[in-house]
């Protein structure tokens, strides 16, 4: 199957410094290595930009009335801030921390220093002034994984790199029932996304389900 280059994402909500921060973070959370592209190459920043513009980005389907006292960890998300606001504030404040600590913004730090900052956010040892660093990191890691593994229609998982990494075939064909007895035989195909189908890149059967192209079973 031919992979054509996808059009570059036009950032709508995120500013350029925010994009550079998120690209740098995604490259550490899911690094590019001998196994293949990482979070940055997958377009995690584009994915997050799209999410922050979605209903979810402004918590449009969340309960948003006060009062807003602090809860126990078991009571869940209780911040007044929406994901849009959290990303905006937390990226800026994390960079303030980096400038103070290292005299450089996050994107200019070395990989080890970047990992230290990410761990500091994850554990809550880095304190941000307007938002909990743990809360921010929780959103960042969750959205990074989503941007790596969600269907490419959302702007991440470019060239289905996340699916290729683990061997997820995407939209199913209609003939898995014929393979039920193929026990312990890895089913390897060129993954098919909703985006591929929308762009007319794959052959479909009468039901509109894709015809998978099986790859060899050699490792």
């Amino acid at each position: 199957m031919q992979e054509s280059a996808e059009a570059p994402h036009v950032f709508n909500y995120l500013t350029q410094p925010e994009v550079r921060f998120l690209d740098a973070a995604a490259a550490r959370l899911i690094p590019a290595d001998d196994l293949g592209p990482g979070g940055k190459e997958a377009g995690v920043s584009a994915y997050i930009d799209n999410q922050l513009n979605s209903v979810w980005g402004s918590h449009g389907r969340n309960y948003r009335s006060g009062p807003w006292p602090e809860g126990t960890p078991y009571q869940g998300f209780q911040s007044r801030l929406t994901p849009r606001e959290i990303y905006r504030a937390a990226i800026r404040e994390t960079n303030v921390h980096c400038l103070k600590q290292y005299q450089k913004a996050f994107e200019f730090l070395g990989p080890r220093e970047q990992d230290d900052v990410l761990k500091g956010l994850e554990s809550g040892t880095i304190e941000l002034s307007s938002v909990s660093s743990k809360l921010f990191f929780g959103l960042l890691i969750r959205n990074t994984m989503e941007g790596f593994f969600a269907d490419p229609i959302y702007g991440g998982n470019r060239d289905k790199v996340g699916w290729k990494l683990i061997g997820f075939p995407g939209v199913p064909p209609s003939n898995y029932n014929d393979l039920i007895d193929e026990h312990n035989v890895p089913y390897r195909v060129e993954p098919v996304s909703i985006l591929d189908i929308r762009q007319g890149k794959v052959q479909l059967d009468a039901q509109g389900l894709p015809k998978h192209v099986r790859l060899g079973n050699q490792e």
């Binding site: 389907r61 989503e146 593994f149 229609i153 939209v171 909703i194 929308r198 509109g208």
Partner: peptide, 13 residues
Amino acid sequence: VPSTYDELKFDRF
């Protein structure tokens, strides 16, 4: 088909 094969949508939206 194919819009039901969307993990993100049915996990969240």
